[in-house]
Computed example of a mutant assay.
Amino acid sequence: MNAVHHDHGAEPRLGDKLQRLLPKLMLSPTFLAALFFLYGFIVWTFWLSLTRSTLLPNNVFVGLAQYRYLFGNGIWWTSLINLGVFGALYIGLSMAIGLFLAILLDQRVRAEGLFRAIYLYPMALSLIVTGVAWKWMLNPGLGVQQLMRDLGFTHFTFNWLIDPQMAIYTLVIAGVWQSSGFVMALFLAGLRSIDDSVIKAAMIDGASLPRIYWSVIIPSLRPTFFSALILLTGLAIKSFDLIMAMTGGGPGFATYLPANFMYDFAFQRGQIAMGAASAVMMLAAVAVLIGPIVFLESRRKSDV
């Protein structure tokens, strides 16, 4: 009887073990695929950046020579400067416009669902489609400039797309148009999650609505700002499709970003090692910019 009782007691324990093991078994193929195709290729890219690879991979180790060539290349520095201008304006304007639209929709306006769909629609388009559409609209011979001249404003000029000094701002316009609706959705979700009792208490104390938003509601959106900043920073650094569709990096190198540099040197000029070095530096830039934000946010949560 004791033996039988022991067998029956072992079966649930075996079943519990299988139940705990089953999710891991189901997720293991995905985990292994991500480990190989994501982190494996990151390691391989880093190795290529330390070699003499040109048109084909070459395992001759040259240390940090490619990085010295990279930072001695004027085109690379131009791409970094362009990224600084584009990234700062793209991130700042997307967050500002997204927050403004979210605050407007938070007033429980009529047809809120329609407005949300309109604002979110650009995010449903691919960056290639967005780039081509804005290229047509900003083309001096087809778009806004030609439309205004056809309407009688014969001296109207809007040729930013072909102006080396202004072309980078056309990318900002298209990028902000694409992303601000998505940022709006993030902020609107954050606004709707704030406890109404906090707002009512501020109103009882006599605070005006703008004051409530500035002093109470917006500071409460810190986690949402954090999420939006991480997403937009990643999108800015790896921007490629939009640039290729709108300007191809031109005129000249006016809209040439690090992603264009990596593609150009790795696949067009046959300098795989140089392209790999630039890709590694892009990954490092993401880590340097986002890492401290993640660290500070996690510290703040742990202190709370």
Rank of each mutant, 00 (worst) to 15 (best):
A33C: 09
A34N: 09
A34R: 08
A34L: 11
L35W: 15
L35V: 04
L35P: 02
F36C: 12
F37K: 06
F37M: 12
F37W: 13
L38Q: 11
L38V: 07
Y39A: 02
Y39Q: 02
G40F: 14
F41W: 05
V43G: 09
V43W: 15
V43N: 10
T45M: 06
T45E: 11
F46S: 08
W47Q: 11
L48E: 10
L48H: 05
L50I: 10
L50Y: 13
L50M: 06
T51D: 02
T51R: 04
T51Q: 01
T51E: 00
S53T: 01
S53D: 01
S53V: 05
S53M: 10
T54P: 09
T54Q: 14
T54K: 14
L55K: 13
P57R: 05
N58L: 07
N58V: 13
V60L: 08
V60Y: 15
V62W: 02
G63K: 09
L64S: 06
L64V: 10
A65H: 13
A65P: 02
A65D: 12
A65S: 14
Q66R: 09
Q66A: 14
R68C: 10
R68L: 14
Y69D: 10
Y69K: 14
L70S: 00
L70T: 03
F71I: 12
F71H: 11
F71M: 12
G72M: 13
G72Y: 06
N73A: 10
N73M: 11
N73W: 05
G74A: 03
G74H: 03
G74I: 02
I75Q: 13
I75F: 15
I75K: 14
W77V: 13
T78K: 15
S79G: 05
S79L: 10
N82S: 14
N82G: 03
G84K: 09
G84T: 08
G84L: 09
V85I: 10
F86Y: 11
F86P: 00
G87C: 12
G87R: 00
L89E: 02
L89W: 12
L89T: 01
Y90M: 06
I91Y: 00
G92M: 13
G92T: 03
L93K: 06
S94D: 07
M95S: 00
M95Q: 07
I97F: 08
F100I: 11
F100Q: 14
F100G: 12
L101V: 03
A102I: 03
I103W: 08
L104V: 07
L105R: 00
L105H: 00
L105T: 01
L105Q: 00
D106G: 02
D106V: 00
Q107D: 11
Q107I: 07
R108I: 03
R108D: 08
V109N: 05
R110W: 08
R110L: 09
A111E: 11
E112F: 09
G113T: 07
G113C: 11
L114D: 12
L114I: 10
F115M: 08
F115K: 04
R116Y: 05
R116N: 14
I118P: 00
I118S: 02
I118V: 10
Y119A: 04
Y119V: 04
L120D: 02
L120E: 04
L120V: 05
L120Q: 04
Y121K: 06
P122I: 01
P122Q: 04
L125C: 05
I128Q: 07
I128M: 09
V129A: 14
T130A: 14
T130F: 02
V132P: 01
A133I: 09
K135Y: 06
K135N: 07
W136K: 11
W136Y: 13
M137S: 11
M137A: 04
